[in-house]
């Protein structure tokens, strides 16, 4: 197991490095129109270039970028002069940025994973019956309706027409309900569908027939023999789902006016704040890698075949 984890960690580190490199050079390829404003004099422009270190050769810039990255220093924001990007992302003072996104993401994650697994199990156990068909229909809806439609509709219905729930912010429990639910629908549907398929597959597995031949109760067969084996493929998709939920979401954050990373990302692109774009991209990428790494390790915990392989 230790060897397995070490190998995974090394692979993950290499992936992050490649990601950082590619992001850097891709952004260098974008025509740098940041200081192209005709109102800026050549002298001022040169000063700005020097300030952000853009006057040096590209390769030197790359080395500086890497060294700073290693110290978790993402440089200075261009759109917000004087503010460190790292501080903007973490923002301990206001709690905006990453902490805000993570709160929203965690809520959605905690809500959607058990929900998805439970619904998928319920559906799989009632295969072919009305309940199963209804759940399949619902999950199809959950997957196909984009989140901006769900979000705007729920704002209209629950916020404006019924007036039950607030539609902006994310600090009080009441404020948390709508964004969490809107963000969760898609992952719930994805997890439920996968769980259902996977559970139905175990229904025909030899070991389930053995379990029945042992005279075990159906509930025990489902919980101990089927669900655990059916969870394996589900765990695989938890990685990307976790990463996408925790790293902020453009649509839900924008619609509910939550100052999270998704919000920043959208703003940084329209502001051409390349430092911030670069920092957020690397952060998202790292998150994805770490989430997948966690899943790999989790996989080992659930599936002894991986854990004990030498």
């Amino acid at each position: 197991m230790l060897k397995y984890v070490v190998r995974r960690v090394i692979t993950a580190a290499i992936t992050v490095f490649v990601l950082a490199t590619v992001t850097f050079f891709l952004l260098k390829l974008v025509p740098n129109g940041l200081f192209a404003d005709p109102n800026i004099t050549a002298e001022a422009r040169a000063k700005l270039y020097a300030h952000y270190g853009l006057d040096k050769p590209v390769f030197e810039q790359y080395l500086v970028y890497l060294r700073n990255l290693a110290h978790l220093d993402l440089g200075e924001s261009i759109a917000n002069p004087g503010r460190k990007i790292t501080t903007m992302i973490l923002d301990p003072a206001t709690g905006n940025g990453l902490p805000q996104s993570m709160r929203l993401g965690l809520c959605a994650l905690v809500f959607s994973v058990p929900m998805g697994i439970a619904l998928g199990t319920l559906s799989g156990l009632n295969r072919g019956r009305a309940l199963d068909k209804a759940l399949i229909g619902l999950s199809l809806v959950g997957i196909s309706i984009p989140s901006f439609v769900v979000a705007t509709m729920s704002v209209t219905v629950f916020g404006n027409i019924l007036g039950w729930l607030p539609t902006t912010g994310f600090s009080t429990p009441k404020e948390m309900i709508l964004p969490t639910v809107c963000l969760s629908l898609n992952p719930i549907a994805t997890i439920a569908r996968l769980m259902r398929t996977s559970l139905v597959e175990t229904e025909n597995a030899d070991y389930v027939k053995t379990a029945r031949s042992k005279g075990l109760k159906r509930s025990r067969i489902v919980v101990r023999h089927q669900v655990r084996n059916a969870l394996l493929p589900v765990v695989t998709i938890l990685g990307p789902i976790t990463a996408s939920l925790l790293c902020g979401t453009f649509v839900v954050e924008s619609i509910f006016n939550i100052k999270g990373l998704g919000c920043y990302y959208v703003e940084s692109i329209s502001d051409r704040d390349y430092g911030l774009v670069m920092g957020l991209t690397v952060l998202f990428g790292t998150f994805l890698v770490v989430a997948n790494l966690t899943v790999d390790i989790l996989y080992g915990l659930i599936d002894p075949r991986i854990r004990l392989k030498r």
Binding site: D206, K209, S213, R224, N229
Partner: peptide
Amino acid sequence: ISVIFQDAMTALNPTM
């Protein structure tokens, strides 16, 4: 009445 199946590899639960 108990049953012994042919292929114990698949007939026993791999995760238990």
